[in-house]
Simulated assay, not measured.
Amino acid sequence: MYIHPLLAQLPEAVRKAVSDASSLRDFRKNEAVLRAQDHTDFVYCVAAGLLRVVSTGSDEQDLTTHFLKPDEFYLGPHFADQGYQSEVSLIAALPSSVYIIPRRVLRSLCMAYPLIALGLLDMKIRRLAMMGRRMRRVATLSAEQIVGRALYDLTQERADGKRVIDKRIPQSVIASYAGLSRPVVNKVFKEMEARGLIERGGDVFTLSERVGQATDFDALAPQASEMPANPPTYAAPDFDMGLHPDGDTPRR
């Protein structure tokens, strides 16, 4: 079972052990993958689809802080212990498939293979940097710029180079992520469409290149660090990594 590019250079036996210890689950649109305050011993890696990371504010309103695209992880608030209590909810913004991996397995991999730990750290740093830029600049942008950047974050690049957004992502989710009301997002969306910045077609909206050129935020999905040109050849560790799949049943 394929899980993540970071594991590509590991010995086949180790990859198989990780695969056997993990599970792949499908989630319907708007179904909770993990709820805030749930206790869990697992990390979550998006295989397909889109998850939104949701925090609940003091007024009990949900706020989408960011999204998880394919090959992105949710590791929890820390990585020091085997289990943790989630501070956020993971909700399927689209029908999604998610790898559910025991934390002890990923922790063992990080200790045995530093490149895995560095790859995860790089993704975390990129995510924090992107969120920091967004927080610093969002107060100075117009509603159109904020919506444009939110839409750009949600795009997927097709083979022809065009960036498209799945029509199944509702405006309420975009509004939650942008920090604007739904009527404002709807108004801006229509204005952008009238100006040719957004085009409807089939199951997607296509974003004009002008929207991408106007944003100085990075695309939402931080890419894992590229593997070295001559990656090291790993030997199987000489200690028990604790990969016992029979003892791990994902719970939410």
Rank of each mutant, 00 (worst) to 15 (best):
L151N: 03
F73I: 01
L118S: 13
R104F: 12
I198S: 09
L128E: 12
M130R: 15
F189Q: 00
I169W: 00
A92C: 00
V173D: 09
S181N: 08
L109I: 06
F73S: 02
A143D: 13
R168S: 06
M131P: 01
T64L: 07
L63A: 12
Q171W: 07
S96T: 07
K124R: 14
I198F: 08
E191R: 13
L118F: 12
M135K: 04
I174H: 09
M130N: 13
I146M: 13
I165M: 06
V98R: 01
F67Y: 05
E72V: 02
G196D: 08
S108D: 06
Y152P: 03
S142E: 08
A150Q: 02
Y99F: 10
K190G: 05
I165T: 04
V173R: 07
A178S: 00
D71A: 06
D81R: 12
R103K: 15
A159F: 14
K187I: 03
R200Y: 09
L121E: 03
S108Y: 01
G201E: 11
A117N: 04
S181C: 05
L128Y: 10
K69R: 04
L109K: 00
P170M: 13
E199M: 15
E87D: 00
V105S: 08
L94R: 00
A194I: 05
P102M: 11
R163L: 11
V173L: 10
V88H: 01
D160M: 15
R133W: 00
A139D: 07
I100F: 08
L197H: 10
L120E: 08
F205T: 02
Y84H: 14
R195Q: 06
Y99S: 05
Q82S: 15
Q85P: 01
Q85N: 12
I101K: 10
D122P: 06
G161C: 12
G83L: 05
Y74I: 04
Q145W: 05
D160N: 15
C110D: 14
V98M: 00
L120D: 03
E72R: 02
S97L: 06
A129T: 06
C110R: 15
R195Y: 02
K162H: 14
L94D: 00
S172Y: 12
I146P: 08
L106Y: 04
L141Y: 01
R158F: 10
L115D: 15
Y113H: 07
Q82M: 13
I169P: 00
I146Y: 10
G148E: 14
R158I: 09
L115W: 11
D122A: 09
P95I: 01
Y152S: 15
F205R: 04
S172Q: 13
S96F: 03
A150S: 02
R200C: 10
I125M: 04
R163H: 12
